[in-house]
Simulated scan of single mutants.
Amino acid sequence: MPGKQTEDGPVEVEAGEDGAEEDLGGLTLEELQQGQEAALALEDMIALSAQTLVNAEVEQLYQEVRPLGQGRFGRVLLVTHRQKGTALALKQLSKTSTSLRSFLYEFCVGLSLGTHAAIVAAYGIGIESANSYSFLTEPILHGDLITFIQPKVGLPEPEAAQRCAAQLASALEHIHAHGLVYRDLKPENVLVCDPACRRIKLTDFGHTRPRGTLLRLTGAPIPYSAPELCAPAPLPEGLPIQPALDAWALGVLVFCLLTGYFPWDQPLAEADAFYEDFLIWQASGQPQDRPQPWFGLAPAADALLWGLLDPHPRKRSPVGSIKAYLGQPWRQQEGKVEGLGEAQK
């Protein structure tokens, strides 16, 4: 009997005699097994990490240099080791808003994924202080991607959008290969390694979950929310999450990189005219009849985004589909189309 995970623990779901995907909320047995294996591996890491936490006040071990980021539940600081002088990034989470398990979960997900070039490298040092939990990562000093996106422009350099998209797709493929779904792709979670925005790294894995974890949409949908999260869940406990959620968010982010604004406010046709126009345009199969928000994009960008933003998750292109469009023009400007290579008519 295959089991599924909720955010509170496993839920057992029995497949039908023919192993129909509908009995598993749309997952195949292979997909469900991959998620289970990822969940078990994380549980083992959490148990081990709980035994190896360093009990100390952060100030005793590290000297604060400056803040790098601030979130609702914690902050990221640039610090130096007091004895060795090594520069590090320290993420500190308050105990008033973060449980030990939540801290260990994010810490262990980062450790399991941090070998990828486009993912922030995590170091195996977790610290419990009187009022906080902390862990250490490599320092990324040029802020997050949101500061590089200009309103109504996107990333000004034509090649930058493709570079960022390619690196993010590779990072997400790495996450999916580990049986996990990232679930929180947005510019604020993409750190920039250099002023020219040539190298980026994905960070913040507090929302990452094993494939098949049962979830419900909490709060109002946002542009990055996939439409299946807004629909009635296929199982009473919720929607079994799939990598297609990350593909949708990647499509929205690529649109922002190219235009400097969201394609819509929420993926609900009855509530958002921009999203309804997109669905009509996509169903028409006529790229030349583009809605106003899509003016300025090249045909290759149309095809890429139509695939990533397919409203049906099983038909949606995987994140790796970006590779087929690299080097082609994604943006039109002044009668010319710009891409990774030489501008073309």
Score class of each variant (00 low, 15 high):
residue 166 A to F: 09
residue 166 A to L: 14
residue 158 P to I: 06
residue 215 L to M: 14
residue 139 P to R: 05
residue 159 E to P: 01
residue 171 A to K: 00
residue 135 F to H: 09
residue 222 I to P: 00
residue 139 P to C: 12
residue 156 P to C: 14
residue 115 T to M: 07
residue 127 I to G: 04
residue 116 H to P: 10
residue 149 I to Q: 06
residue 161 A to F: 07
residue 208 T to P: 01
residue 195 P to F: 13
residue 130 A to N: 10
residue 213 T to S: 11
residue 201 K to M: 13
residue 204 D to G: 00
residue 124 G to S: 11
residue 139 P to A: 14
residue 207 H to F: 14
residue 153 V to T: 15
residue 124 G to H: 10
residue 120 V to T: 08
residue 144 D to K: 02
residue 193 C to W: 04
residue 144 D to Y: 06
residue 131 N to T: 12
residue 129 S to I: 06
residue 170 S to L: 02
residue 138 E to P: 01
residue 127 I to L: 15
residue 156 P to M: 12
residue 236 P to V: 14
residue 197 C to E: 10
residue 127 I to N: 07
residue 138 E to W: 04
residue 168 L to N: 01
residue 169 A to V: 00
residue 185 L to V: 05
residue 218 T to R: 14
residue 123 Y to M: 14
residue 189 N to K: 09
residue 224 Y to P: 05
residue 167 Q to P: 08
residue 247 A to L: 07
residue 150 Q to M: 11
residue 157 E to W: 09
residue 174 H to D: 03
residue 238 G to A: 14
residue 197 C to L: 14
residue 113 L to A: 02
residue 218 T to C: 14
residue 157 E to A: 10
residue 243 P to Y: 08
residue 139 P to M: 09
residue 155 L to G: 04
residue 220 A to W: 10
residue 167 Q to N: 02
residue 126 G to C: 02
residue 164 C to V: 15
residue 146 I to W: 07
residue 129 S to E: 11
residue 225 S to M: 08
residue 229 L to D: 01
residue 235 L to W: 11
residue 239 L to Y: 12
residue 174 H to S: 05
residue 178 H to K: 13
residue 193 C to A: 15
residue 165 A to K: 02
residue 119 I to M: 04
residue 145 L to W: 05
residue 154 G to Q: 06
residue 220 A to K: 15
residue 178 H to I: 08
residue 248 W to N: 00
residue 140 I to K: 01
residue 128 E to A: 15
residue 118 A to G: 07
residue 172 L to F: 00
residue 212 G to D: 03
residue 168 L to H: 06
residue 144 D to I: 00
residue 123 Y to L: 13
residue 189 N to C: 10
residue 223 P to C: 04
residue 183 R to F: 01
residue 223 P to V: 05
residue 135 F to S: 00
residue 195 P to T: 12
residue 124 G to Q: 12
residue 247 A to G: 02
residue 173 E to K: 08
residue 232 P to Y: 11
residue 235 L to T: 11
residue 171 A to N: 07
residue 245 L to M: 13
residue 234 P to D: 10
residue 248 W to M: 04
residue 204 D to V: 03
residue 219 G to C: 09
residue 113 L to W: 00
residue 196 A to G: 12
residue 206 G to T: 03
residue 217 L to V: 14
residue 226 A to W: 01
residue 136 L to T: 06
residue 248 W to T: 05
residue 189 N to E: 03
residue 227 P to K: 00
residue 177 A to C: 12
residue 137 T to M: 15
residue 237 E to D: 12
residue 137 T to K: 07
residue 118 A to Y: 04
residue 202 L to V: 06
residue 237 E to V: 11
residue 211 R to G: 03
